[in-house]
């Protein structure tokens, strides 16, 4: 566990230093162009990673029955304004079909945990397609996110915003 966290975090360290890490095998490497993929938002619209270009974006994969995902969503609600101020929009998507396990729907999850921030226009919730989940989360982690710059390159990779929010905010500030 610790070893794997180090691998994920090493990618974020590289992002902070502005360098490109090699492929870790557990997540897409920092510096790579974010692959395209689609998700269905709660309003039913189809969105794609490619459509996010032009502004920094955080694409965050969660599982609705995961404790750290619940805590992370609450933390995100407290910090969405700061990320928005740095121009970052957040796309929080459910890992495809919650990895086949029963959990609350993404809408219930989002509304109950995001509170008033649910209505923030820079925070979108949805459900990732199978292909998008496999591309960005090949190891099936319950909680992993990617910060992508306006040019569509991955600049920061981590998980569990409840404990990694300071690093994420720093990475977002560096994009400005």
């Amino acid at each position: 566990m610790i070893l794997t966290l180090h691998v994920v975090n090493s990618a974020s360290s590289s992002a902070s230093a502005g360098t490109t890490s090699g492929s870790t095998g557990v997540s897409l490497p920092v510096g790579a162009v974010a692959p395209n993929g689609t998700a269905i938002t709660l309003s039913g619209a189809t969105t794609s990673v490619a459509s996010l270009r032009g502004r920094p974006a955080l694409i965050w994969f969660v599982t609705t029955w995961c404790s750290s995902c619940e805590a992370g969503t609450q933390t995100m609600a407290q910090n969405i304004a700061a990320l928005s101020a740095d121009g970052v929009r957040v796309v929080e998507v459910e890992n495809y079909a919650d990895f086949g396990q029963s959990g609350p729907t993404m809408e219930t999850f989002a509304k109950s945990l995001a509170g008033h921030a649910f209505a923030n226009p820079d925070w979108t919730f949805g459900e990732a397609s199978s292909a998008l989940t496999r591309t960005y989360n090949p190891r099936a982690y319950l909680d992993i996110y990617y910060l992508i710059n306006a040019a569509g390159r991955i600049v920061y990779v981590n998980g569990s915003p409840s404990s990694t929010m300071p690093g994420l905010l720093n990475a977002a500030k560096s994009l400005v």
Binding site: L3, T63, S67, F99, A140
Partner: peptide, 27 residues
């Protein structure tokens, strides 16, 4: 919610669809 399970499963050779379903089931 830790990367331990998928890492262990991948280590023992579970991959692809099996990794997704097994990871989800175990966690």
């Amino acid at each position: 919610c830790t990367p331990m399970v998928p890492s262990l499963l991948a280590f023992v050779g579970v991959s692809g669809v099996g990794l997704y379903s097994t990871t989800g089931a175990v966690q």
